[in-house]
């Protein structure tokens, strides 16, 4: 009854099949305001699919998702299309391979949706964008095109692009998997900074030490189900199940 925390994401009994293959087999979890949820697990365990279901890039087969108390899908039944658009803006998604708009400058990548979707004035959008780029250490790249940037810089632009719409929660889909180890650090530093600012985030990652350090909670998934869930240090340093131990053995030695 003490729970005054605001529930940002609520997922209940989520199921997702592609054809006859069930990728997510009934998953439930909640993310509260200011929390960072780390999702770890082997490839193909359904981690990214969860984020894609929250972002409406995939349609769930069954189960419920609500964001900020607003239901998106209840027991497999979606709310009408016109309501889904508002809900998509409550979360921001950072992709593994950035997906920046190559024909737009760095600045325009960050302002385009503010102007076209939030109907902000170009001046206002520019100001927001420049502040974010400044924070990402990319203010001097505002007029460059994505193809002129390193992978790490591109990923920082895509984080700025997502933040520009002021989402309630930021979802990271393996944000460092397309980067070489040297560039990984700069992205992890940005995410860490956001965590310190109490940005609500869900981070799907293969960086175990990172997941342990920034998460308030960690979920270990395998085969479409949650195997273990809890305090990050507990889960990653002292896993209870054999499956988690086997998976983490490579990281903990």
């Amino acid at each position: 009854m003490e729970n005054t925390e605001q529930e940002i994401i609520s997922i209940k009994n989520l199921r997702k099949s592609f054809g006859n293959t069930e990728i997510i087999k009934g998953i439930s979890f909640s993310v509260y305001k200011g929390e960072v949820l780390g999702i770890i697990g082997p490839s193909g365990s359904g981690k990214s699919t969860i984020l894609r279901c929250i972002s409406q890039l995939e349609t769930v087969t069954d189960g419920s998702i609500s964001i900020c108390g607003q239901p998106l899908v209840t027991d497999g039944v979606y709310v009408p299309k016109n309501q889904r658009h508002d809900i998509v803006l409550k979360s921001g998604l950072v992709f593994q391979n950035f997906n920046l708009f190559p024909h737009y400058s760095v600045l325009k990548n960050v302002t385009a949706a503010q102007i076209a979707v939030l109907k902000k004035s170009p001046e206002e959008a520019r100001q927001t964008a420049m502040e974010l780029l400044e924070r990402m250490g990319l203010a001097n790249k505002a007029d460059n095109y994505p193809c002129e940037l390193s992978g790490g810089q591109q990923q920082r632009v895509s984080i700025a692009r997502a933040l520009a719409l002021k989402p309630e929660v930021l979802l990271f889909d393996e944000p460092t998997s397309a980067l070489d180890p040297e560039l990984t650090g700069e992205i992890l530093a940005v995410i860490k900074e956001l965590a310190e600012e109490k940005m609500t985030m869900v981070v799907v990652t293969h960086e175990m030490a990172f997941a342990r350090d920034i998460s308030s909670e960690v979920i270990f998934m395998d085969g479409g189900v949650i195997i273990e869930q809890g305090n990050p240090v507990e889960v990653i340093n002292n896993p209870r199940t054999e499956r988690t131990k086997a998976f983490l053995a490579r990281f903990n030695n």
Binding site: Q56, L57, H85, V88, F95, N99, A113, S158
Partner: peptide, 11 residues
């Protein structure tokens, strides 16, 4: 990915 990025940004 271009369509997906646009969709999550609300276009």
């Amino acid at each position: 990915g271009q369509y997906e990025a646009a969709k999550v940004l609300g276009f």
